[in-house]
Write a protein that binds this DNA or RNA. Sequence first.
DNA 1: TGACCGCGTGAGAGCGCTTCCATATAGTAC
DNA 2: GTACTATATGGAAGCGCTCTCACGCGGTCA
Lengths: 342, 342
Amino acid sequence: MTEGQAELVRRQPTLDTVAAEAGVSRATASRVINGSPRVSPEVKRAVQDAIARVGYVPNRAARTLVRRRTDSVALVIREPNATVLADPYLANIIVATSDELIGTGVQLVLVNARNDDEHERVADYVRGGHVDGVLLASMHGDDPLPGMLLAAGVPTVVGGRPPRRIPGLCYVDVDNLGGAQLATEHLLGAGRKRIATIAGPADMTAAADRLDGFGRALTEAGLTADRVVHGEFTHESGELAMTTLLDRHPDLDGVFAANDLMAAGALRVLRASGRRVPDDVAVVGFDDIDLARHTEPALTTVHQPVIHQARLMTELLLTQISGEPGGDPVVLPTQLVRRDSA
Amino acid sequence: MTEGQAELVRRQPTLDTVAAEAGVSRATASRVINGSPRVSPEVKRAVQDAIARVGYVPNRAARTLVRRRTDSVALVIREPNATVLADPYLANIIVATSDELIGTGVQLVLVNARNDDEHERVADYVRGGHVDGVLLASMHGDDPLPGMLLAAGVPTVVGGRPPRRIPGLCYVDVDNLGGAQLATEHLLGAGRKRIATIAGPADMTAAADRLDGFGRALTEAGLTADRVVHGEFTHESGELAMTTLLDRHPDLDGVFAANDLMAAGALRVLRASGRRVPDDVAVVGFDDIDLARHTEPALTTVHQPVIHQARLMTELLLTQISGEPGGDPVVLPTQLVRRDSA
DNA sequence: TGACCGCGTGAGAGCGCTTCCATATAGTAC
DNA sequence: GTACTATATGGAAGCGCTCTCACGCGGTCA
């Protein structure tokens, strides 16, 4: 190969190159590439050979321009907290989404919109026509973004239930309420009476639903759900919350933490305080991330089907993109995973 | 808003719309958008007002087509193992890269090329002109991809040292050898004499370098490095490796695990075998992921500057894209973080 | 034999943008 | 007043592709 000396960047072959090489028109070459049936077998062969010979790769920008289709979707993550960002829950969402897209020819554009006020930037980006659809994850509060995208007619699927009902908006949630209720009932079933919870950030529906589930289980058991402290879904905030809880209610015998990271923090504080888990205090988490198997003792927790959720979101988005209507919200079941902490 | 009934999709305003609205030519409107100095202040104002009025957003595909610049880069992850994929190390790389890109106007396309033979697909994708440059992470073996990209003249930065020296290829590595040596010396310094290692996958240079560092430290202390078992950088493989190690060398008093996940697995097996850490067996890990602070006991480990690495890779890539030459390989320092396990 | 049909193919318009080149206008120097 | 220059603006080409439309050809039917 003599290309080592190439100082002028050799231009990629275009469709014209292929057409000339195959002795056909550009239109015909295009037909072959796009699998049109109205091409004679000989010509098809000739074009395919030419493509291989010149090493042709279609230019996406040109194709996008005329087709008004980018064959890529955005995964927009609205998580301001860097610790949570690096948490396996989101990593799983990212990986599962990307996995689901393999083989579809659709690319994943990762948009990290951490700041609250970035919805304008994201909306502009999407309206700029760079993606065919949007997956929204880790939403906080009443984010205007889903509404904006819906209004702009952009196919959108949200991970988790938005706080406000938005007609026509498709989302995939997991049964946070039911899962939390399960967890709390498990604690009750083990004879615990003085149960507290470390709730998640109040501006996230997943956290609110888990708190509701906790409250419902206690109420149904005739108890009052008044031992509540909020954390930030991080390990550190779990430690802090547990410390506060112990301070206020030294006699507690059960804790439901709204996620595993906080549960791990709680475990640590509990141990440091001289309490044995589960003998003195039983602990249940939520998420069932990898870490849950590695804590001491291994964490009893609520499994949420993250990968399934991500796959489903992607699937629903692709359906929407292909022109079918929005699709109804979906809520996936959760289940209790019993380990050693409760 | 009466747009609810819109059955014909309202087309986004184009540059022509803006030009007409502002009473100028398309060329002038374009100049304003691209910040050309040769525009009179009044016209500039008029165009900017028009843009705001019609809600214009430039079409990226059209711009890309003529500029031959996509303003996006690919982060290609070559990790076949799903567990490792979801591991915080890679999550950090993804997040840090994406963070570094904020404000540059460059988008991140995540390409998950798990299978060994996908380099062709990725290379074609890149040659299709969909990205301006490529970041490569989690490489295994002697992957042909970097060479292919380099040959195609595509700006590329690799995370970690490739096994074979490729002239002109830019990479950012961390000092795996030095870190491993530090870890092992720490074990030696604590009086340990029968030290084993749980090495990483033999096809990754990071793993090989860590094993080398381990060997070097022992050799310099006049000991032989013959207690070696390989794992897969996962928690489970760490447990397995530790079991094997204990079986072969029941008298060992120190373990260097090539990553924290495996160290956590080792800790668990050690505890199950009735050994106390660090009293009976001291353990040092590598990576300093979040988990290292949550193990029992908290893990002494080697900190590698993942976020710094990702940021630097991104920076170097953007430099390359802007036309400057490749840039030399960089090796970032690692340091020992002392906690309770050694 | 002529009218008709279906199929494979090519010509060419046009997607929305940037940018070269030409032109108009105003300003300066002689 | 003329000649020249600097500056703002518009016309228009063209990036690489898809797709409509028109055309030519061979076959079928009356």
